[in-house]
Design a binder for these strands. Structure first.
Length: 500
RNA sequence: CGCGGGGUGGAGCAGCUCGGUAGCUCGUCAGGCUCAUAACCUGAAGGUCGCACGUUCAAAUCGUGCCCCCGCAACCA
């Protein structure tokens, strides 16, 4: 048994949860469930990023304290995760004591090591945005009230670890995935790395974690936020727990925060003398009909609406199946309905109806024994026997989409097998043979349901329950003969396309 | 010459590491089946594998050049 520790980014509390947040979190949940199913000890961390400028401003506007504001916003995420069937191990909020202490200790350790120094920072400052902007941003002309500002700040010696990081990336091909993101980071690291400003003067912005060595400053949100990955698993506080889980197996992130994770976070860990993550995996974006989702375009897809309209499992299935490893994916209602009907209603759900209908009619609803085998059965049996190991391999490579495809291939194979073996015909002359066919088909369906239960927990567990195989595993032949099938409705009723 | 990824039947992808019958899902058409959610199965049509040159007995796959698309270039799943 090995351990599997996965994280999502901690989401910014001011954001409205959208399909992107849902995707990352479901992906983490799916990976966790797969790993649990193969007996791994798992830890799945998600949470909220609650410090920083925007939260501070939003709270001011509403005339509440920042913490009150966060307390009111947090349930939006927590409730969504509940509706999406997310079973996280821990939900961390950066305003929690357990986190703040660790951030401060990390800062102090880094400071004591001589990796943090004070300097005057001079740059373009947007009064309207209340933050420093880059030269490029200034030139874009999109910022008002830009002035030159000089300010004392604290800096982290990121540059000191540049070569060490390059070496680490080169020595660990799986560290940053997919590969083209890894190349991107290596390309970025060809330029000399600057040091990272990790402080904000309280006079400007006080909503953050105070620097242990300078009470006039709070720390930069990213420094604060990234620490969550270790503070949640006992860093500096619970040595045993920390040893058990760290380093993390996978940090799931969106491609937009690749630099913060691969460069900021890694160098921070170097300075703290902690091991680096095993894998940082950057997935793509969900596009809404060719364009990026944006609030101004008004095309933000609310995952809650989808779930309420169609149910959790099919939304999880669609998101997992549609996003190809590391690429952008396109969300369209048509695509969703097509996927639902062809994969879930026609192939998977319908297969359950076929076998249960036949078993009910021919065997009084009791699963028949497989006593009269034929070479035709071997094709199904052999494919089914190979599947679990294959799925396991794909999941460890983070190829969820391919794992689903491989499982659905078995479902289609079984549909073809039933067709060619025609048990409804065979039954008229040779009932035991018909029973064998049905046992084989049902057992393959059981295995498929078992393997898909990470993606669609409630529907798949329902299938297993109908087959009286709720506690079965991934070995061929675990389906018990003689069990009376439970009655059931259509698993995924076909969706009629809206004709407009 | 900033760095990187990609261009494969109507759509979305795999194959390229290590050259040898171009594969999958969806869509279209025809047929079959009638156990099933008008579901399922089989077959067919449809591809100069971005373009050109080169290496080779043989190139989607290797090399060079060109065209086009996309990502990164320090806020944002």
């Amino acid at each position: 048994m090995s351990k599997f520790y996965v994280t999502t980014p901690i989401y910014y509390v001011n954001d409205k949860p959208h399909i992107g947040h849902a995707y990352t979190t479901i992906l983490a949940d799916v990976l966790t469930r797969y790993h649990k199913a193969i007996g791994d000890d798992t830890f799945f961390l998600t949470g909220l990023d609650e410090h920083g400028q925007k939260v501070f401003q939003a709270a001011q506007k509403r005339n509440v304290t920042p913490l009150q504001h966060c307390n009111e916003m947090a349930p939006r995420f927590i409730e969504l995760w509940k509706k999406l069937g997310i079973e996280y191990s821990d939900f961390i909020r950066t305003t929690e004591d357990r986190h703040i202490k660790v951030v401060q200790e990390a800062l102090q350790k880094t400071f004591d090591r001589g990796d943090i120094y004070a300097d005057e920072y001079e740059g373009w400052y947007s009064v309207a945005e209340e933050r420093f902007i880059t030269e490029t941003e200034k030139d874009s002309g999109q910022f008002r009230d830009v002035t030159r500002l000089k300010e004392k700040n604290w800096f982290f010696k990121m540059s000191k670890y540049q070569q060490k990081l390059i070496n680490h990336i080169n020595d660990n091909p799986g560290f940053i995935q997919p590969e083209h993101r890894r190349n991107e980071v290596l390309g970025f690291l060809k330029q000399p790395l600057g040091d990272l400003c990790i402080s904000r003067p309280k006079s400007r912005m006080s909503w953050g974690i105070e620097l242990p060595f300078d009470k006039d400053y709070v720390t930069y949100v990213w420094y604060d936020a990234l620490i969550n990955y270790v503070s949640a698993v006992g860093c500096f506080t619970d040595e045993e727990k920390f040893k058990k889980w760290w380093p993390v197996s996978v940090h799931l992130i969106g491609k937009d925060i690749l630099t913060t994770h691969s460069v900021y976070w890694s160098t921070m860990l170097f300075s703290l003398e902690l091991p680096l993550p095993e894998t940082i995996f950057a997935h793509g974006w969900w596009l809404i009909g060719q364009t990026k989702m944006s609030k101004s375009l008004g095309n933000v897809v609310n995952p809650l609406d989808l779930v309420e309209q169609y149910g959790v499992d099919c939304v999880r299935y669609y998101l997992m199946k549609e996003m190809i490893l590391g690429q952008d994916a396109n969300f369209t209602p048509e695509g969703f309905i097509k996927c639902y009907n062809s994969d879930l209603a026609n192939d998977f759900g319908n297969l359950l109806n076929r076998v249960s209908g036949l078993i009910n009619r021919l065997f009084d609803g009791k699963i028949p024994p497989a006593e009269k085998k034929d070479p035709a059965d071997d094709i199904v049996e052999q494919s089914a026997k190979k599947l679990p190991a294959n799925v396991e391999k794909l999941i460890t490579e983070l190829k969820v989409q391919e794992a689903i495809a491989a499982t659905m291939d078995l479902v289609r194979l079984v549909n073809g097998y039933i067709e060619s073996q025609a048990p409804w015909k065979v039954a008229k002359t040779d009932l035991p043979r018909a029973g064998t066919i049905l046992y084989t088909a049902t057992e393959a369906l059981r295995l498929a349901a078992f393997l898909l239960s990470a993606v669609m927990p409630s529907k798949c567990n329902l299938v297993l329950d109908i087959l009286g195989a709720g506690d079965s595993g991934r070995r061929w032949g675990e389906l018990k003969r003689g069990i009376k099938l439970k009655t059931h409705e259509a698993l995924f009723p076909r969706l009629e396309v809206d004709k407009k």
